[in-house]
Amino acid sequence: MKTIYITLGFVIVALFQLFVPSYMIWEQEDVLLSGKVYKFKTKPIDPSDPFRGKYITLRFDINSFKTKDKVFIYGDKIKVYIKEDDEGFAKVVDVSKKKLNIKADYIVAKVTNTYDNTVTFKLPFDRFYMEESKAYDAEKAYFKVNRNNSKENVYALVYVKNGRSVLADVIIKGMSIKEYVENEHQ
């Protein structure tokens, strides 16, 4: 094959290699700039991923909904419709496999269980990446705060737009979890 064709092929591949991560950024930035922000009560724990480093896994209070609909099975992708409650936290108003005609934002979640007219699901934004040394401390900080039974002190800030959702930060006692862990260190 002539060098010019190989070079041309490489340029196309290289552009794709640049396009994929750039598109990932654009998708997230779009939600962060024009999406609506919600607060989700949560509990952080500390696992890690071999390639992408340390993160904390978030276990949300919102993880199930009572429904008479029995069409859900494990692994299904469902739309979880949310609104803000009186305290400003997100609450589920409905779940459905199809798009509903109601005035509320929705998040695409994965069904993990169904029992007794209740569907349990996993929200997609359950990973919050942190600096290597801080992930475990973040988990410890949560337990320290939670000891005083003040669960509302820990929540995730999530931007939602057209079913897409971006986790922007995790807040402990009104502070970003990164700052909170740093303050604890000092």
Binding site: G9, V13, F16, Q17, V20, P21, M24, I25, Q28, D49, P50, F51, R52, G53, Y55, P124, F125, D126, R127, F128, Y129, V166, L167, A168
Partner: peptide, 29 residues
């Protein structure tokens, strides 16, 4: 590059989908 973008934006995708993207972008090489 893909893993760092996933980190910065807390993209939750599974390890499987991350590996698929990675391999697909490298196969033509």
């Amino acid at each position: 590059c893909i893993s760092l973008i996933s980190q910065i934006y807390n993209i939750p995708g599974t390890l499987g989908s991350f590996l698929v993207t990675w391999i697909l972008l490298c196969l033509p090489l």
